[in-house]
Amino acid sequence: MAINNVNNGLPKAPVDNNKVNSQQQVKSNQTAAQQAAASAAQASTAPRQDSVSLTQSAQQLNQVQKKSADVPVNQEKVDKLKKAIQSGEYKVDPQSLAKKIARLESEIFGMKS
């Protein structure tokens, strides 16, 4: 299939090599500038730092653990309790235990029981 009337029958305009070269050079310079800017941005960007934040409950638990490490231990009482538990003589009063747990939680978390 033939195409007729290319350029509306007018003669083809001569190519201005100087104009083409300058356009290519401008485009090349722009590309080089973009690449340089991209690599500079990557180089200047500081590496991301990891961070950790603890909830208020975790901070309180940490404080309780630090305080408990400083409390003296009555080793004689601990040994008696161990012996009673191992021999099966130690009996737990569930109501008394529940009251003590509730009181401890209220002290730790600042609630009234």
Results as ranks from 00 to 15, higher is better:
residue 84 A to C: 08
residue 109 F to Y: 14
residue 45 T to V: 10
residue 60 Q to M: 13
residue 50 D to I: 13
residue 56 Q to I: 14
residue 81 L to H: 04
residue 4 N to S: 12
residue 13 A to Y: 09
residue 85 I to C: 06
residue 97 L to Y: 09
residue 56 Q to W: 08
residue 79 D to H: 06
residue 28 S to R: 12
residue 109 F to Q: 07
residue 65 Q to K: 15
residue 12 K to N: 13
residue 62 N to A: 09
residue 51 S to V: 10
residue 94 P to D: 04
residue 64 V to Y: 14
residue 30 Q to D: 12
residue 46 A to C: 00
residue 49 Q to T: 12
residue 110 G to S: 04
residue 112 K to Y: 01
residue 23 Q to F: 10
residue 42 Q to G: 06
residue 39 S to D: 04
residue 105 E to F: 10
residue 60 Q to H: 08
residue 32 A to C: 00
residue 64 V to Q: 15
residue 67 K to R: 08
residue 86 Q to I: 01
residue 57 S to A: 15
residue 7 N to G: 03
residue 45 T to H: 05
residue 59 Q to F: 05
residue 9 G to S: 02
residue 10 L to K: 14
residue 53 S to H: 11
residue 7 N to R: 13
residue 81 L to K: 01
residue 56 Q to C: 02
residue 96 S to M: 10
residue 10 L to F: 07
residue 34 Q to P: 00
residue 90 Y to R: 07
residue 60 Q to E: 11
residue 6 V to G: 09
residue 42 Q to Y: 10
residue 15 V to A: 09
residue 78 V to D: 02
residue 15 V to N: 02
residue 68 S to L: 15
residue 55 T to D: 04
residue 50 D to M: 12
residue 58 A to N: 08
residue 59 Q to A: 02
residue 50 D to V: 12
residue 11 P to Y: 01
residue 72 P to G: 03
residue 89 E to K: 09
residue 12 K to H: 04
residue 113 S to Q: 10
residue 108 I to G: 00
residue 27 K to V: 06
residue 34 Q to I: 02
residue 44 S to H: 09
residue 21 N to D: 11
residue 6 V to M: 14
residue 8 N to P: 01
residue 35 Q to A: 09
residue 85 I to Q: 13
residue 11 P to V: 04
residue 75 Q to F: 00
residue 39 S to T: 12
residue 26 V to L: 15
residue 22 S to R: 10
residue 62 N to D: 12
residue 93 D to I: 03
residue 108 I to Q: 01
residue 26 V to K: 14
residue 7 N to F: 13
